[in-house]
Each structure stands twice: as C-alpha cells, then as structure tokens.
C-alpha cells in the first residue's frame, strides 16, 4: 500500500504545482484550440469528416508532446529528481506519478478540445472517445519515460518528439481506426494491447533511466 501512497503523493505534488504556477495546462489548451483553427484552413472545402478525424489525432499527439516536454521541468530545478531517486520508495513510483499527472493534464485539455472538435468539424461516437482515452494512456506512459531520457540530454526539447513520434504510430492507427472504421472495437483492442505492453515495459525500465 505504501507504493500507491507514494504514487498518489507524487501525482498530487505535480497537480498542486500546476494549480499554483499554471505552466502547462493553459499552454496545452491554447495550443490544441489554435491547432483546430489552423486545421480549418488546412482542410479544403468538401474534404470530408475522415480527414478531420485524422487531423484530430495529429492535434492530440502534438498536444501530448507539448505537455510531455514540460513534464520533468520542475524536477530539473534544485536537484529534485536526485532527491526523489534517493527517497526510500520504489523508483517506478516516480514514473507512475508523472504518467498520471501528465494524463490528467492531457484529459483536462481534451475536455475542452473534443467538444470544440465536434462543434467545428465532425461528431465523435463512444468508440472514438474510448479510443482517445486509451491512446492518452499509452502516449503518457511511453512519453513520460522518454521525456525523462530526453531531459537528461543536451538537446531535450528537440529530442523528445524524435523519440516519441515513431512510438506513437500504432496509437495513431488505433485512434483513427476507432474513429472512422465501422468495426472500431478491433482498434480499441490494439490500443489496449499497446497500453498493456508499453506500460509494463516503461514501468520496469524507468529505474535504469534515472539512476546514475
């Protein structure tokens, strides 16, 4: 139970920092809304809903990347990450706490962005929404590990999209498939498989990435 308590404390810490500083969430919100407006001008008249769904997924992935690039910034200052690594808790709890916090920001930005998408472009059904949620889990799980790697490098902001984008291609396929295919449930299975496999892998390997 102490493991869950550690995770809860770490997530709480990130949410509280965000509530006080408001660094990440407003940026993500503004970004995703601006992107949707840009897409309106990028889609020629009569392109149809299918293209809009595709672009929605581009917007989701890039918004997540924006959030992830800020994810480890608080830990970079004052050696917080070193403190967390030295703390008497399992190191994977740090990853899980960060993943949950990033997921909370991403979902919060989508609470505004998805209705805006429906208003501007095309309707979303339940399967499509489930697809968004499952893909959010996958991208935050993988992304928070990759962001921790990128944060230790010389070229952090540049490196993160390069590391994450190839890994998001299966999520893209699953998300777009869930939105436009008549048999969307099959794609949900793919997303669930991705989440399971990559969450376990990220959870197990986080320790190696942060320890000296």
């Amino acid at each position: 139970m102490t493991y869950l308590a550690d995770v809860a404390a770490l997530t709480h810490k990130d949410l509280r920092i965000e509530l006080r500083a408001r660094d990440t969430l407003p940026a993500m919100l503004l970004f995703v809304l601006s992107t949707l407006v840009v897409f309106h001008f990028a889609l020629p008249e009569g392109t149809g809903d299918a293209a809009a769904y595709g672009l929605l997924w581009v917007a989701i992935v890039f918004t997540a990347l924006l959030g992830l690039s800020r994810a480890w910034v608080p830990e970079q200052e004052h050696g917080v990450l070193d403190g967390l690594v030295l703390a008497p808790s399992d190191r994977s709890a740090i990853w899980l706490g960060k993943t949950l916090a990033t997921l909370a920001f991403l979902v919060a930005s989508q609470v505004i962005a998805l209705p805006a998408f429906v208003l501007f472009f095309a309707p979303l059904d339940l399967v499509a929404l489930a697809g968004v949620l499952l893909a959010d889990i996958g991208i935050c799980a993988v992304g928070s590990l990759m962001a921790a790697m990128a944060a230790a490098s010389r070229s952090r902001e540049v490196l993160l999209p390069l590391l994450v984008l190839p890994l998001t291609i299966p999520l893209m396929v699953g998300g777009v498939g869930a939105a436009i295919s008549p048999e969307g449930e099959r794609y949900l299975l793919l997303l669930a498989l991705y989440d399971g496999v990559f969450s376990v892998l990220s959870w197990a390997s986080f320790e190696y990435v942060v320890t000296e």
Binding site: L145, M149, P170, R186, F198, L201, S205, V209
Partner: peptide, 19 residues
C-alpha cells in the same frame, strides 16, 4: 532501454500497419 522498446515496437507496429 530505448533499444528494448524497438524490439517491442516491431510486432506492435506490424499489427497496427496490418490493421
């Protein structure tokens, strides 16, 4: 760790591309 992600990505991507 990144190299390990690669071998896991191979089958998952293949499945996704097939779908």
């Amino acid at each position: 760790v990144y190299a390990l992600f690669g071998v896991v990505l191979i089958p998952v991507s293949f499945l996704a591309i097939r779908l």
